[in-house]
Design a binder for these strands. Structure first.
Length: 424
DNA sequence: TCTGGGGTCCTAGGACCC
DNA sequence: TCTGGGGTCCTAGGACCC
């Protein structure tokens, strides 16, 4: 008997896997998620190639392609213009992210109803722990089949991988899509992983793969057996962990669902349809990015101490510059001028800016309040300005009357076609 | 007609302190 | 007669993920 199976029959699975030994970790991955939601909401699009992504005419990329579009060779992260050539008759949409978030929350609620141990890793993926005896004594396979069925009832489908840890579950989930359930029986994971290319394991990207090939390591089996001295220059402090993961021996923690993931940074960036060369335009773009970052910081109740300005130039290379502030702030009237000073430090006439990004991080508020006579600091030790109230008021107006109700007028310079990516 | 928009984590060098 | 080593903070950049 091989360790890898795809099951269709409840009876067969429960007969075979009534007794599961050790941890049972699942990964649920929603199939072509954004495109599937669009097809659910637009019945006339079902069975047709649907592409969620950026504008083919500017510099957009494909966020998600429906399975019908994938048969034409279209896939995530492909430049939209290329996708358009491969599949000219595809239905295009820029996406409806509030709707995707809503559907994602419904799916996560199904998971939470089955087990309290859920780690949501993205809008369309979550690990869950269904180890027998941890929460329920039911067969993990049966629980996964039920999850799959309940998700289908919501109008979208998922693929699930089940194994002894996250690495195994994740790779298993990719074996059979869409609507697959792939089970790696405990004890068979090393054999399942060994022949796979190193790139199959998350955490190994293009450059990691190249470095491993250089060292003569091509498969996960070879990685598991490799000398840690060889892996150290490639993975740094994680060399030992990568070996363990490749061997299928990693021990995964799946935290209870109510443990909120700590937000480490909040940022906003924008690629322009045509490069910005005028300094006033760049300043306006940064101010606009700052509004969005400030709004999200305040919504999360966060205040950051590090301002990061990110630029990409027309010839491809980029720069990121950071500055640490004396006080944390959630007020763009404070951190946007800092970002503009950072820009001053590298700006030259003739610069072609393809992308500008602005981020805030370093939210640790435990450092205590420093006193500073030269800026306003509120009772939390957060630096503010007399214009913060204006920003807050504008947000409230927008919430009530819509995004375009009020603004500083600089938004009009840039179209807004921001699209997020979904890999499945 | 080469590459979007979020994020996280790690490394390495320099400044600065003892 | 100026020099070692360790620790920590800050900054820039890169790899990776969805």
């Amino acid at each position: 008997m091989k360790g890898e199976h795809t099951y269709d029959s409840d009876a067969f699975a429960s007969a075979l896997f009534g007794a599961w030994s050790g941890p049972a970790i699942g990964l649920l991955d929603l199939d072509a998620f954004f495109a599937s939601v669009e097809q659910l909401d637009h019945p006339e699009w079902r069975g047709k190639p649907v592409i969620v992504g950026g504008d083919p005419e500017s510099r957009g990329v494909v966020s998600t392609a429906s399975y019908e579009a994938r048969t034409f060779g279209v896939h995530s992260a492909m430049p939209s213009a290329q996708a358009k050539r491969l599949c000219p008759h595809a239905i295009w949409t820029h996406g409806h992210f509030d709707r995707y978030r809503e559907m994602s929350a419904n799916v996560m609620a199904v998971l939470a109803d089955e087990t309290p141990y859920v780690d949501q890793v993205s809008i369309d993926e979550a690990f869950f722990d269904v180890s027998p005896g941890r929460y329920s004594s039911e067969s993990p396979v049966v629980i996964c089949q039920r999850i799959s069925r309940r998700v289908s009832e919501l109008g979208v489908t998922c693929s699930i991988g089940l194994g002894c840890n996250k690495t195994v579950a994740k790779i298993a989930s990719e074996r059979d899509k869409p609507r697959g359930l792939t089970v790696i029986v405990p004890g068979t994971e090393a054999g399942f992983l060994a022949p796979l290319p190193v790139r199959a394991m998350s955490g190994i990207g293009r450059s990691g793969e190249a470095a491993l090939h250089q060292a003569g390591i091509h498969t996960l089996g070879q990685l598991a057996a490799a000398d840690e001295q060889v892996l150290s220059p490639i993975f740094g402090v994680n060399a030992g962990l990568m070996k363990l993961r490749a061997a299928g021996r990693e021990v995964s923690m799946v935290t209870p669902i109510d443990a909120p993931d700590e937000v480490k940074s909040v940022s906003n960036e924008r690629t322009f349809g045509t490069d910005l060369t005028d300094r006033d335009d760049v300043d306006a773009a940064i101010a606009l990015l700052g509004e969005s970052v400030g709004r999200r910081l305040r919504r999360h109740g966060l205040a950051g101490r590090t301002v990061t300005l990110k630029l990409k130039f027309s010839y491809g290379k980029g720069r990121t510059i950071q500055r640490k502030l004396a006080h944390p702030t959630d007020d763009e009237n404070v951190f946007v001028p800092v970002a503009l000073e950072l820009l001053d430090s590298i700006w030259f006439e003739g610069m072609h800016i393809r992308l500008a990004g602005l981020g805030m991080s370093d939210f640790d508020m435990s450092g205590g309040v420093q006193t500073d006579l030269f800026c306003e600091v509120d009772e939390r030790g957060v630096q503010t300005s007399d214009r913060r109230e204006l920003s807050v008021t504008m947000e409230k107006v927008r919430e009530k009357f819509g995004r375009d109700a009020v603004g500083f007028g600089r938004a009009a310079r840039f179209d807004s076609d921001i699209v997020r990516r979904d890999k499945s």
